[in-house]
């Protein structure tokens, strides 16, 4: 059952990155869209993510619940030492979620829209940034559980070059995912071209920030290069990601939009795999060199058993329903 639970945990995190990430990305794209095209972007975006954003968002909750039920030490270590970035990310989630719904459901469309839009865009950016920072901090080895002063215990653990670089890398990946996703959502040639431009821009940003991640890792003495390149899985994941990128641009020029999404998702999955495979099942690397691994902190047997059962049962109930939701709202209205 341990493996079932861990699989669900990884799946939850991955899907949150992909689906929730595309969702944040939509706000980020809007942030980088010129004022005259914004309202159109917004409309396309609303059609695309309106029906599903609530469901996307659930993956985070699933992952968190699995963590606190099954791996309480990981959950509590994160919540103590990454308190501040978690808090900021939560504020971002609150702000963007409510602004997104409010702007659509406000019965009167007036100046308030301006406010909702602002909040939505900036908080999407902040949420993605801090999601990345948190992910980066977990493997950065800067979390210091023995620190005595406030800054070392609660700030430097996440405010370091590596974590911040991962944060910006995440932002660009989210933007990229969203742009690719939106290309398939519009029928207008002009809009399509605009989203392709955005995808290009985000792709370049991702490459730049990706390079920064490596530089920052070097600076912070994190053996990222070893993890990625001295290990067959990591290496092949990176090669596959690069190949799929080439394929992706080829297909984009050819105008095949549906398969693009799969490829973009695949690419991000590969990047995550490359970064995390080398130290799996270690979830948190601490400053004193110790690690907190999934297997060491796993909860009592009966708990894991019933958690696994609940997850399996849940997915039997949920997946067909969820699939149907995506299917039903994929079909564009003619």
């Amino acid at each position: 059952m341990e493996y079932v639970v861990i699989t669900f945990l990884c799946l939850g995190i991955l899907l949150y990155f992909l689906l929730g990430g595309a969702d944040f990305g939509a706000g980020i794209i809007e942030l980088f869209t010129s004022a005259k095209n914004r309202s159109k972007t917004r409309k396309t975006m609303y059609q695309a993510i309106g029906p599903v954003w609530e469901a996307n968002h659930m993956w985070l909750i699933i992952a968190i619940v699995i963590l606190f039920v099954g791996f309480p030490r990981i959950y509590t270590t994160m919540s103590v030492y990454l308190h501040i970035p978690l808090l900021i990310m939560l504020i971002g989630i609150i702000a963007r979620g409510t602004a997104f719904v409010f702007r659509h459901y406000d019965a009167v469309k007036d100046d308030m829209q301006w406010l909702y839009n602002r909040i939505f865009r900036y908080s999407s950016f902040v949420t993605a940034l801090f999601l990345g920072i948190i992910a980066g901090s977990l493997i950065s080895g800067h979390i210091d559980t023995q620190a005595n002063d406030f800054l070392s215990a609660y700030v430097w653990g996440w405010l370091n070059w590596f974590s911040v670089a991962v944060g910006f890398f995440t932002v660009s990946l989210c933007g990229f995912l969203a742009a690719i996703y939106l290309i398939g959502e519009t029928n207008e040639e002009h809009d399509k071209r605009r989203f392709i431009k955005k995808a290009e821009f985000m792709n370049i940003a991702a490459v730049v920030f990706g390079a920064m991640v490596f530089i920052a890792a070097q600076r912070d003495k994190i053996p990222l290069i070893d993890w990625v390149f001295k290990n067959t899985i990591g290496l092949s994941a990176i090669i596959l990601a690069t190949l799929s990128l080439v394929l992706l641009w080829y297909l984009l020029i050819k105008g095949k939009t549906k398969i693009l999404r799969v490829l973009a998702g695949f690419q991000v999955t590969m990047i995550l795999l490359a970064i995390s495979y080398a130290h799996f099942p270690n979830f948190i690397r601490l400053k004193n060199g110790n690690t907190i691994s999934l297997f060491e902190t796993v909860g009592p047997e009966k708990t894991i058993y019933s958690l696994g059962l609940a997850l399996l049962l849940g997915s039997v109930l949920i997946l067909p329903f969820l699939g149907y939701l995506f299917y039903k709202f994929q079909k564009k209205e003619e």
């Binding site: 659930m58 909750i61 699933i62 619940v65 699995i66 606190f68 039920v69 099954g70 909860g299 708990t303 019933s306 958690l307 609940a310 997850l311 849940g314």
Partner: peptide
């Protein structure tokens, strides 16, 4: 945690 995981 059981109710929370079912609640999920």
């Amino acid at each position: 945690g059981m109710p929370f995981s079912l609640e999920g």
